[in-house]
Write a protein that binds this DNA or RNA. Sequence first.
DNA 1: ACCGAAAAAGTTTTT
DNA 2: CTTTTTCGGT
Length: 812
Amino acid sequence: MTDPDGYDDSFDDPFQPIGTRAESAPAPVRPQGGIAARAMAARRAPDYLTGLNPEQRLAVETTEGPVLVLAGAGTGKTRVLTTRIAHILATGLARPSEILAVTFTNKASREMKERIAGFVGGNVEGMAWLGTFHSICVKILRKHAELVGLKSSFSILDTDDQIRLIKQIIQAEGLDDKRWTAKAFAGMLDGWKNRALGPKDIPEGEARAFANGKGRKLYEEYQERLSILNAADFGDLLLHVITLFKTQPDVLKEYQRRFRYMLVDEYQDTNIAQYLWLRLLAQGNPNVCCVGDDDQSIYGWRGAEVDNILRFEHDFKGATVIRLERNYRSTSHILAAASHLIAFNEGRLGKTLFTDFEEPDHDLVSVASVWDSEEEARTIGDEIETLQSRGHSLNEMAVLVRASFQMREFEDRFVTLGLNYRVIGGPRFYERMEIRDAMAYFRCVAQPADDLAFERIVNTPKRGLGDATLKLVHGVARAERIPLMQAASQLIDTEELKPKPRNALKSVLDNFERWRRQLDQMKHTELAEIILDESGYTEMWRQDRSAEAPGRLDNLKELIRSMDEFESMAGFLEHISLVMDRDSADATDAVSIMTLHSAKGLEFDTVFLPGWEEGLFPHQRALDESGRAGLEEERRLAYVGITRAKKRAKLYFASNRRIHGLWQSTVPSRFLDELPPDHVEIAEASSSYGGYGGGGYGPSRFDSHDPFDKGSYSTPGWQRAQRAKQSSSGFSDGGGRGYQSARQKRQGPLTIEGELVAKSVSDTPSQFSLGERVFHIKFGYGAIKSIEGNKLTIDFEKAGVKKVIDSFVERH
DNA sequence: ACCGAAAAAGTTTTT
DNA sequence: CTTTTTCGGT
């Protein structure tokens, strides 16, 4: 791309439309459905359309007006999106630079680019407006920065910079930064910005909730600081563009005119700000196509507004809604399980997935009970080995957990088994300490006014420049209104500093000056190496004898290697703030371990789903904090998990789990009871199972290990779903008394029609006394050493000292 | 200014 | 039980 902002791109489109467009003609405006257009499309019977089913084809060919494509899991969503773009290009309806295609992640936009390239023959450079919400906003903002009070060279703060900045503001305000943490405020800020609320717009209640009513003031101050630093945080990228569009009608018109067709991926994940952004653009042009699945909305907790997709028809008048329900991924059992489960949710647009993929020998969805997380890992490890020995590739297997702490147990087990695995997710490459440090050095060289970067590395490695010195520098900087580095160099010339810090500071500044001079003279990768070397940074890690140190050095090498792809240091820094995920394109065969959240969009032949227990999944916190909505989001997460499986879905629940160091008994997840019995098998009981089911709580049909007993299937929720499902035929299952009466007796978490009312841990004082001899199903006999509420510390005769919950032991 | 010990907290994640 | 962050002593 010759033009860096891709905006004033000339008409040298790399795509040659299949249509009859004259070479020098301006963009054709053709009435959709016009005879010529249809003839044009028909003439070639383009091969890109031939493999589509009727709904997919409709979604591709309905180019005019608002379109909502409800694409269930595995129904070819990405295919529709990319084919639609290819179709618009091929029929000459728009040029590549006139299509806006928005995704959430860089990964998604990269994939889309690749797939469009497949259609159009390699060159997708013309698709200047295919990218994430944020990258597109940056592109717009760089062009019009002055109109919203920024300079075009503004820098983008990442989460870490943001937190440190907030911390400074909180301290400057004289607040206790322990009582009012920067992290907490960052969370509130995020919430506000997700809803497109500026300092003046935030609700009074929320403004008061933080720091004795200083919330609004802090927000204002934070924005002020950002503008002084000529910086924007991630939320600002969107908000500034919204402001720009609202205050500059001519600019808005320009973009409305430019974007003839707009596409949004994963629409169920959009927040309010993103919605408003889209609405502004769509005002001038109704050709908006949003693709999403309300049943896969799992990011409500970070601001995603399911309402956006639920209200689409209302918001975009005359919208065509197309449902993609034919699933190309999973067996009928897996689909039945997922569909039955998700039917328990109320607020949904409703889709029913179906498939032709039906063979008598398909595995049922399996549910297995295990004693504890250790046995869970052992069982899954064994099953993986069995599958592997039958010739299944490890790449086609995944363990999907609810929370990351569950991963360790599997890693441990797989290590002892010598099973190859990879963990997906976790800290991103660019979030690692060493990468951020190195980046801060580069930023200081390339952007001398980058205070946050300077602060980060001024004393890394240790140079004897602590708080005291830094405070002085800060004081000068604030008084003179100059960047920290400039302030530091002034300070050196005075006598205010003691000789030791003074020399240290001087040597740091001298270094930066030297590096800056070398910036234009040598290759940026070479300079980067020199910087890390001469600053003593690499040496610092070489001295470090901790286990991670070698890995960190490797990461630094990797960082330098990745810089090679960029033209210059500045070019590298420009891109890095928005795009830098490590491409772990690992060729080795390995089982994947990841959270359910990071599994969205992926698929595997076999999916292992451990930890289906109340409190963990659905997670207690989701229930406590968001009630019904929280439960429904958890259920969607379960739906996402099951639908990742192509051939085999295997679910597990443990009767006992160690949470925060103490053993707790657990109840099988209500989601297990929401699965359709005909498509589920209860897996064989494990040998080590002691016959102690459910930890003394109410029964679940999964307490039974008799493979012939599929349980009663009569929980209230199950009946409700049955009624919903069969309401057309008037059929209703009348059973269920047995379970209900048992449920009323149980002492565990109290639920009323799926809504949790009591907390998980009982607050009644323990009925045990010190020194008492007790029996525990796992650890055997022991004596009570101490009691804290319902937590007992017990010295077991065989197992040693353990902490357990009192409901776990009985008097003896 | 730096290091070690104690205390606190401990879903989910992208840009 | 772990990991991370903070506090206090040297």
